[in-house]
Design a binder for these strands. Structure first.
Lengths: 231, 231
DNA sequence: TGGTGTGAATGTCTTCACAGCA
DNA sequence: TGCTGTGAAGACATTCACACCA
């Protein structure tokens, strides 16, 4: 790994991993870059570039061995060993995420949830205990929690983030529609659901602006995408 | 509007809008580009470029008038008039989104939800009726629904998407971790929660790779961000 | 022949810097 | 003086095309 990985390159790695796991389930042993690219927004060249950036995983004339590449991608993404994760804010969204099975399978174990509402504290949702937020530092410390999912209302987000940082959490996935102010040593990833809907709205209203690479297997798809007559 | 709007530029417009609404609530009448940029990942120049792309909204020496700019941004994003939206799949995530208040405030009215499970059909969640998915075409047609939120399991996503398209839906926000195959005239926006966690994991493991622009108001923040010694 | 890894070319986005208006 | 709008420069990302390996 040399210089610097682009933001979107990392997202593509996740997609490659998902694709490879799918292929692996179909007992495929070896794949080419173009086979990985299928069902992904990427091109074959891009797959090769992204992978080659982290090492030489492929063999010319053969392709990539699926199982080792899956392991390598997990190492790169940091999910080869499971993370312990907490959820702060057990409203609708928080509860949904507590029940969301896919996290565990992908290497993210939710070990506890926190809220301030007395009627929520003490409940068990999706197999996870809801505790008073006062106990957060203790739990984070004891269980070596390093990631947090923040699903509190917007005005509670910054204080919650501060508490998480002080407790030793190293990364926060924030669903509150607020910009958090955090030191550089705490990673932050923002998920703004209304912004996603707004983008969808925009795309529906501006059809010429579509960038979608096609998702199915058909090889030769080279339609013109840059459109929009001026004015 | 001339050529083409970048993917991330649209996301920034959402952030500007959020920021402007925040300022508007504080009875601010006029703002400069750098004031909009505060609490955003953007620079002042980028704010100006993004806005100027859609027209001349600002006045030199003065700045932008908040209220008209909010209206203009809503027009651009397409949320000046509310959209009617349906939710397909009333599992944990679907239920959470049905209860999520912010959608309505942002111009997205959820008018119905659909599922196949008999025990869910007939319920009312967050004020929204859950119906049999068989009634989807009828409801979409009657209520002129144009957007859909897809929160079904991965293997049910493609059939559901096909049904939505046939029913006349023009945009789909997909939470299932699958690539959907849709014609170009249906907009698609993918939200992959595990991919977001994977990126967070990556960022925690590769601290030098951080791109975050800072979120607070302090003006002079020009730290070195491009790091990583080679090899 | 089939496929990787990679420099070079191209394309896209962001930042700079400044003319010009209030 | 304060601030926008914008060409030009620069940084960054993607695609091309081909040497080379199995």
């Amino acid at each position: 790994m040399k210089g610097h990985v682009s933001h979107s390159a990392v997202r593509r790695l996740s997609l490659y991993l998902r694709r490879l796991e799918h292929l692996s389930a179909g007992h495929v042993e070896t794949v080419s870059s173009s086979r990985i690219a299928e069902g992904t927004e990427a091109t074959d060249a891009q797959v090769r570039k992204d992978l080659a950036y982290f090492g030489q995983f492929g063999r010319p004339g053969i392709g990539y061995r699926v199982a080792p590449l899956i392991r390598k991608l997990k190492n790169i993404l940091g999910t080869a060993r499971p993370w312990r994760v907490v959820v702060i804010g057990v409203g609708g969204l928080g509860q949904a995420l507590l029940r969301y099975k896919a996290f565990g399978e992908k290497g993210f174990d939710i070990v506890a949830a926190f809220d301030t509402a007395p009627d929520k504290i003490g409940q068990t949702i999706g197999g996870v205990k809801v505790m008073d937020v006062a106990r957060l530092p203790e739990i984070v410390d004891e269980q070596e929690v390093r990631l947090a999912i923040l699903t509190v209302p917007a005005d509670a987000a910054q204080p919650a983030a501060d508490l998480l940082r002080r407790s030793g959490v190293r990364g926060i996935l924030n669903f509150a529609p607020t910009n958090l102010d955090l030191p550089e040593n705490v990673a932050l990833n923002q998920v703004d659901l209304t912004a996603h809907l707004e983008r969808l709205s925009f795309d529906v209203r501006h059809p010429g602006n579509n960038h979608r690479r096609n998702g199915n297997g058909s090889a030769a798809e080279r339609k013109k995408l840059t459109t929009d007559p001026k004015n």
